[in-house]
Simulated scan of single mutants.
Amino acid sequence: MGQKLRVCLAGYGILLGTMAQADCPAGQEAFTSCQIEGRNTEVFVCFDDHVATYSYGPTGGTPELFLSENIEHVDFKPWSGLGKAISESVTFYNGDYAYDVGGGFDRPFSDEEMAQPIRRFGWVEVTQRGERVVSLECIPDTVSYGFGGGIYDAKVAAGLTWSWDSKTWISELIQPTATPSLMQSQPYNPAEDCLPASEFSLNGVAMGDPLDKLGKLGSPEPVEDPTSSGEKIDRMTLVGMALDIFEDVVIAMSSTSPDWKMPSGLRVGLTRGEVIRILGRVPNGYAATSQTFVSHACMENQDTAEWSILIEFGQDRRVSGISFARPWY
């Protein structure tokens, strides 16, 4: 998506981007909008330097659904730069539901195509927990899509960089370290990825900590054995984190809140690209677009060799959970 190409196509962005301006919130401009085929409804995605908004409802009427997200966090997917069709999309999340809205047009390559009306297209796809609920098509003549600048430039101005490998945005606040977090465990052949044992910690609470070190956090309660092994397990439930304790030692931890961070800065809420930057690379056996990453502690002694980490990504391609555990647990 070169700057020269954006400049060359700016005229098309102006031509195709005038329909929705009056229906955007005050101070915002349209990214894309259209009327939905066969539904007598319309959709608008608008933005300014700080916020992007989504509205859907009856044509000319009050929106049935209105969502907003800050520019840094909004899930915007830029054009790949390939093919005849130019299109971009924005996805808004609302609980288990995701609303992906896109707009685009075919770019002309000849004088004959330049003389023809531009083919426009757009869509709204709704999913629930990643499963498609409905796909809607736009009436072509109603599509407004202003390619060039827009949300892309707003995100770049906010200090974000698009990663094509992970298909996520990376904050400039997340910088590579001199020593990558992800290492290789040499005793194995071939060598396996591992993390230092010091990384198996959240806000200073670590795997292997004795119960008496956790006194200020609260008291654990017995829970039903999750593995049916017959062992007695106690659980300490905190805001955004849970600790499992066996024989007065922490044997498992799980976090669902960005407030709990690993020493390297890994936490819930980071994009997949940001996790890869902190790790230093994609873990062996996984792709930059994988829904999970799994690794284990570098072998320092018999105990740490058993620790494993599971990083899970949600439908928004951000970390939804981080878990530490022993393999048998």
Rank of each mutant, 00 (worst) to 15 (best):
A178S: 08
E247H: 14
S198W: 09
A206E: 01
D248L: 09
T32G: 02
E247Q: 13
L270E: 00
Q35N: 02
W164M: 07
M241V: 04
L310N: 00
S201A: 10
C34N: 06
V319P: 08
R235M: 10
G57K: 03
S55F: 12
N203W: 02
P108R: 04
D316F: 02
L214M: 08
P258C: 09
G149D: 14
D259W: 05
I278D: 00
V45R: 02
N94H: 14
G57F: 01
G60N: 06
T271C: 11
V223T: 10
T271W: 05
D234L: 09
K167D: 13
I251K: 12
L9W: 11
T237Y: 01
A30L: 06
S33C: 15
I309E: 11
E231H: 13
V133R: 11
E113C: 12
D212C: 10
K155A: 03
L279E: 04
A154V: 01
P263N: 02
E72L: 06
D49H: 12
I245P: 04
K4W: 15
P78Q: 11
I86D: 07
G240W: 13
S68R: 10
P226C: 05
D106P: 05
S181L: 15
Y286C: 06
P187H: 11
Y188I: 01
V124P: 10
E312P: 03
T32Q: 02
S323C: 08
Y329S: 07
Q3P: 14
A98R: 01
I322M: 10
T91S: 08
L15Y: 11
G273M: 01
P58V: 04
T142A: 03
T41E: 14
G218P: 01
